[in-house]
Simulated assay, not measured.
Amino acid sequence: MSQKIKDIININDSNNFNITLKHHVIFWLVYFLFTTFRWGSYFNDYEYAFKTTLLGFSIHMTLCYFNIYYLMPKFIYTRKYIIYSMALIASLFFMLILKFNLTFFLVSNNVWPEGPEVTSTLTLNYAIEMMLGELYVVAFVAAIKVTFDWIREHKRLVDMERLQLETELRLLRTQVSPHFFFNTLNNIYSLTIEKSDKAPKIILKLSELMRYLLYDTKQERQSLTKEIICLQNYLDLERIRYGDQLKINMNISGEIEDKEIAPMLLLAFIENAFKHGANKNVGEVNIDIDFNVIENFLHFRVSNPIATEKNYNAIETLQGGIGIGNVKKRLELGYDEGEYYLDINNDGKEYIVNLKIKV
């Protein structure tokens, strides 16, 4: 699995949380204690600070929850900003009246001890100051709510992106087998038409490949050794089909043990060499395949002669079919930038693929 997909999954794991009742209790408890000690220190009267904070506390909570769970979903999320502003101001004014009366009758006749003078009536300055104070608390809680909503929405989008990437990568991987079997069955068909004795051997080799494809290619990464064995089985199929007409030079160097690669990734390049090389030429065909492991990278090279048929389009060879397009997409999704380098070249005589990939 590529690092980009792993990062997405890690983000999902780290953001897999919900705001519970415990979080609400902790938040308001911290807020209550902070406000009590703040005003208790300011007035040097902690009993008074406790009473006023307790009174204002219920008003803060009511207004904040009314805003984030009713006003915002009903008006902000539906883009009715003017109605929202009017409803919020009306709510602030209602809470102002309630706070003034509760303070006056339950705590002290001086409802604004921190004000410039003794206040026992509902003045404009008191109203503005109290509404701004309430608005501060409402805005602070709303900011927390918006932040968590954004995180939740981001997580949802990331989940969708991860699912899309995994689905696309899985689909590309599953396309390899039908594409491969289609070509191989075509080979068997042509041999049966010719009533060739090679057909049974090809069917036996094909069954071995089918067993590998069905049971050993479901992982994101497969042993490089097993992949090479799979490729050798495929080459054996082609040797049976072409006989002495086909010359395959296969070289393996470097430490291939304990190395892993995306399954069935290299087969498309070798298939392509036969599709646009051996199938299009008459006479002896040489295909060179090199595996060279240097540190944590596999240097893979396959070359085949360009077809000599007049009606054969060399541009078609360079671009490849579904197999090459599939590989390019799998490399893009399954590996990060810097973990692979692919070069497909047509020099006029040979079709050459060079792939450097992390293993």
Rank of each mutant, 00 (worst) to 15 (best):
L206C: 00
V111N: 01
V118N: 01
L96G: 02
P200C: 06
R162Y: 01
F140H: 05
S108N: 03
Y136P: 09
L135P: 08
S177N: 13
L172S: 04
V138F: 07
A143T: 13
V138Q: 01
P116G: 03
S120V: 07
H154E: 06
E114M: 06
W150P: 12
V138R: 06
V137I: 13
A139Q: 11
T103G: 10
L169K: 02
L163W: 09
M130N: 14
F182E: 14
L157A: 08
F105V: 04
V137N: 07
Y136V: 15
V111L: 01
N109F: 01
N110P: 08
E153V: 02
E166W: 07
F100Y: 12
N183W: 05
I203K: 13
R173G: 02
E153D: 02
L102A: 06
Y189W: 12
V138D: 01
N101F: 05
E161H: 06
N187D: 11
I203A: 11
A127P: 03
M95K: 03
T103D: 11
I151P: 12
V137E: 11
I188H: 04
K205W: 13
A139G: 15
L98P: 05
I203S: 10
T119V: 06
E117L: 01
H154C: 14
A139M: 08
M160F: 14
L135C: 00
I144M: 07
T167A: 03
M130E: 12
F105I: 02
N125S: 11
L96R: 04
V107K: 05
T147D: 14
E114A: 13
Y126N: 11
I97Y: 13
E166C: 05
F100L: 07
T103Q: 09
V158F: 12
P178Y: 08
L204E: 15
T147V: 04
I144Q: 03
F100D: 14
N109W: 05
Q164G: 02
K155L: 09
T103C: 15
V146D: 12
N109Q: 08
K198D: 01
N110L: 07
L102Y: 03
M160D: 04
W112S: 07
Y136H: 14
K155D: 03
E129W: 15
Q164W: 04
A199D: 00
L102D: 04
W150S: 08
L169N: 04
T119G: 01
I193L: 10
V137T: 15
V176P: 02
V137W: 04
L171Q: 13
K145Y: 00
I151A: 06
I188F: 12
I202C: 06
S177F: 14
L98F: 11
T147P: 11
A127T: 12
R170M: 08
L124C: 15
L124K: 15
I151T: 08
I202F: 14
L172T: 11
P116A: 08
L169H: 10
T167W: 00
S108M: 00
R156L: 06
E153M: 08
L96W: 06
R152E: 02
V137F: 12
K155I: 07
T147I: 02
E134N: 09
L157Q: 05
V137P: 15
R152A: 05
A127M: 02
W112I: 01
I128D: 15
V137Y: 05
L157S: 09
